[in-house]
Design a protein around this nucleic acid. Structure first.
Ligand code: SF4
Ligand code: SF4
Lengths: 132, 132
DNA sequence: TTATTTACGACTATTTTAGTCGTATATAAA
DNA sequence: TTTATATACGACTAAAATAGTCGTAAATAA
């Protein structure tokens, strides 16, 4: 209930790690996995995802790795979550995925209000609030 | 990611339904299940849970059912969620359940801040904010 | 006595999340 | 040119959380 995923946590840990490096220095998936006891293959996929999304940049080959290329101040947290995990909403009716109760539902409005509050909260945050 | 459970939604739907009844009137599990297309057996368990927690009161036998006994203004939403689903936290380290990253974790502080924000938000709400 | 309703726990099914594996490609260095 | 190291990617499996079902008991109004 109301949990964030490991995928997101591992992404945040990695970004903070990269943040703290000297400009231009690279970190490999292995380096990060070892430092934080994260399964290496799993982390690799997450870093690849961040790379596809242009948040970090990959350098192949030996002595390769990743570096951060986007200013964390410019990355909105709602967007970041949705980049990693897809549409965010505390219940199903918030978007396409409907639910059996939809027509009769008597709590949709208040539940939506709560949903908006959470989104607003993350909308007001950037990645920098976490990685600094 | 950041979802509330059906169990909680069904509980809220039921409470709002009971709220709207005349004082003293009962609603059975079947009545509510039918009205909102909720699986009856599942809903029954949820109502029993609410009853054990003294939020509603059960009357057995034919023409029995449930009525609301607690003023929704007095039920804090954080407590309500934890009553239904157990300890609430966006990540594992928020309480007893630890995690492999704990020692090395570089995002624990900011993640905890976010967690607190969400708790605070629900702490400021009561059941009445949803059921009215 | 019967029909209706709550009570409760064990069980199963489904979905989501987490993690693994195999294989390909790029590239620096020996 | 070979080798070792690293990213890229998708298919697969495992584990955990969530959702829903079933059987059986007990209360009670009619
Ligand atoms: S709030 Fe109501 S309509 Fe929306 S997902 Fe929940 S039950 Fe369905
Ligand atoms: S914030 Fe860090 S210590 Fe807490 S659960 Fe996440 S990874 Fe573990």
């Amino acid at each position: 209930m109301l949990k964030i995923t490991r995928k997101v946590e591992y992404a945040l840990i990695s970004l903070r790690h990269l943040q703290q490096k000297e400009k231009g220095q690279l970190s490999s998936a292995k380096e990060i996995a070892d430092a934080y006891l994260i399964p290496q293959e799993l982390l690799a996929k997450i870093l690849q995802h961040l790379s596809r999304e242009k948040i970090i940049e990959a350098v192949k080959g030996p002595a390769g790795g990743y570096k951060i290329t986007t200013d964390p101040n410019t990355i909105n947290m709602t967007k970041f979550f949705e980049l990693m995990e897809g549409p965010m909403g505390i219940m199903d009716c918030s978007l396409d995925t409907s639910c059996d109760q939809l027509n009769a539902c008597n709590i949709r409005t208040p539940i939506n209000r709560i949903n908006d509050s959470i989104r607003t909260m993350f909308d007001k945050m950037t990645l920098a609030d976490i990685t600094y």
